[in-house]
Design a protein around this nucleic acid. Structure first.
Lengths: 199, 199
DNA sequence: GTCTATAAGGAGATAGAC
DNA sequence: GTCTATCTCCTTATAGAC
């Protein structure tokens, strides 16, 4: 009981500190202090700092995004594609704005080039599930001719890229999250996108 | 003479190592070794590791992008907007692919959230000059009615975001730079973009 | 300007008592 | 499972000879 809980607390504190200071910048000592135990106690749960880091990645990789932003009620809206796209973008932005996701994206951006994250982290990986979802959705729209005959792959890129850039630009740690500004840009993006592809 | 040269060598080695391992991950010792001197000799040129890091940022901030990708012969093409956009995108991608720029973008992505880069680095800053250029260009295109009456700000975003995402996704250090794949995607992007905005 | 020598502290990790 | 104590190594940085 107590073990399992401490293990979670360590993982959570580690995600927090790694995402703030980077892998090298956050020490076992800091993590232990955040949890309220001594450094040596951490080694009872993870055999090294590296293993702790990789445990974080494993947890995030096991997660799936589709069920969180593609519920049934949203898909019912496919008859009204413009409204669907707005809701879809809004849900995506909200999902990316949850604290764990914010932290993970920071970690991804920071460690994707370093020795430790090099093999395990990439933006392409991070976006792959979303890209797949979008290809399916836009593929359907193309087939039913409610949008112009574009390659669904392109449509997916054009839809996602501006959203992801907006997200990463508003990711600074201590920021006053003025999500209103974000949603305003997102709306303008979707408006443009829809007007560009609709038949 | 010798001093000035060593100082440059240190700066260059530091950029190299910081962009590979991050600020915390690269040590003064490594940098000194790369230059071929002892650690203590570095302090003759920069009074601390932090000052060395900030010197790199200062150098990159003093640089300007427009003259490198907006030459006169390119602007002559404005009468053929599609060709212009293709050339413009290609030059931008080539500029972002120069070794110093690749290193700086990696540094930016890695350190923008940490204590040391927090104040000095942001994607928004990095893109601001380019955004300004694009707003001017698209503003002109809107005014002369060769493209639809969109807000130039939106057009700039839609043009830049997919390009920047492509760039960051192909930024891994040791990668075989298969720029052909990159240019293929870039071309598809510009094609879509132009077909979306042309009158 | 660069070197050797060294200080002072923080890092990751282990041993063994409780 | 957590603690204290400790090891070993690496870090940034300084002092002073050449």
């Amino acid at each position: 009981m107590k073990q399992a809980n401490t293990k979670r607390l360590i993982l959570s504190a580690a995600l927090d500190l790694f995402s703030q200071h980077g892998y090298k910048g956050a020490s076992i000592r800091q993590i232990a202090r955040a949890v309220g135990i001594r450094e040596s106690a951490i080694y009872n749960h993870y055999k090294s700092k590296e293993e702790l880091f990789l445990a974080i990645l494993t947890e995030f990789k096991s997660r799936t995004i589709s069920d969180k932003i593609l519920s049934d009620d949203l898909l019912d809206d496919l008859s009204n594609p413009e409204k669907f796209l707005k809701n879809f973008a809004e849900r995506l932005i909200n999902y990316w704005d949850t604290p764990p996701e914010r932290k993970f994206i920071r970690l991804l951006l920071m460690e994707q080039f370093t020795r430790i994250g090099n093999k395990e982290l990439s933006t392409t990986d991070y976006l792959s599930e979303l890209r797949k979802m979008c290809r399916l959705i836009f593929g359907e729209m193309v087939k039913t001719k409610i949008v112009k005959q574009y390659n669904p792959e392109i449509l997916a890129e054009q839809f996602i890229a501006p959203l992801f850039l907006i997200r990463t630009e508003h990711l600074v740690a201590g920021e006053n999250k003025n999500m209103n500004a974000v949603f305003k840009i997102v709306n303008m993006h979707v408006d443009f996108f829809w007007s560009a592809i609709k038949t």
